[in-house]
Amino acid sequence: MYGVVLWSDISENKAVFWCEDQGDLAFFHACPEIDGEQCTEFDAGDLVQFDIYLDRKMRKALNPRVIREKARTDLPHRLLNGQSNLEASKSKGQVVPFPTKIQTERKKVSS
């Protein structure tokens, strides 16, 4: 799987990846004393490739490799902006209209 690093902490050997399939985030935690795996120095926006597995309903990354540094440095900011825009639109009570074609088909069905 490919993903973009949203957050990482080298001192804790942890990282969080936004996955290419737009599913749940993948969490990475290297345990050098158990599995000998070292945390690569990830930065927010790095494109990474990794194996993925489920552990108690949580997606976890294994064997992450940096494919391209700073590929999407704007992603964490864009996600935060998108969340605040979503919350603002909810508070304004905006309704997202359906396309005209769907509304026309609804009228035909209800007639």
Rank of each mutant, 00 (worst) to 15 (best):
T100H: 06
G45W: 04
Q38Y: 10
E20T: 15
L6D: 04
I67Y: 00
G36T: 10
L47M: 05
G45H: 03
V5G: 03
H29L: 07
D74M: 13
F98K: 11
V5Y: 04
P97Q: 06
M58R: 10
K60E: 00
R56C: 05
G93S: 11
V66Y: 00
F42N: 08
D46T: 02
F50N: 03
V16Q: 01
R72L: 14
D24V: 09
I52Q: 01
V66P: 07
K92N: 14
S84T: 13
T100D: 05
F17G: 01
I10V: 09
G82T: 00
C39M: 08
K90M: 09
R56T: 14
V16E: 04
K108Q: 09
W7H: 04
K60S: 06
I102V: 02
F17A: 06
S89K: 02
D9A: 03
E33T: 11
R59H: 08
R106A: 15
V16C: 01
K57P: 04
K107W: 00
S111R: 14
P97F: 04
E20S: 10
R72V: 06
L80A: 06
F50M: 02
A71S: 12
A71F: 12
M58F: 08
Q22E: 12
N81E: 08
D21P: 11
E69R: 03
T104I: 15
S111Y: 05
P97H: 06
S91W: 02
V48I: 12
S8Y: 03
A26F: 11
Q83L: 15
V66Q: 00
L80K: 13
F42S: 05
F50Y: 15
V48G: 02
Y2C: 07
N63I: 07
G45V: 01
G45Y: 05
K101Y: 13
A71T: 00
H29P: 08
E87G: 12
S110H: 12
F50K: 02
R65E: 12
W7T: 01
S89T: 13
S84Y: 09
W7K: 10
K60Q: 12
D46Q: 09
Q49E: 11
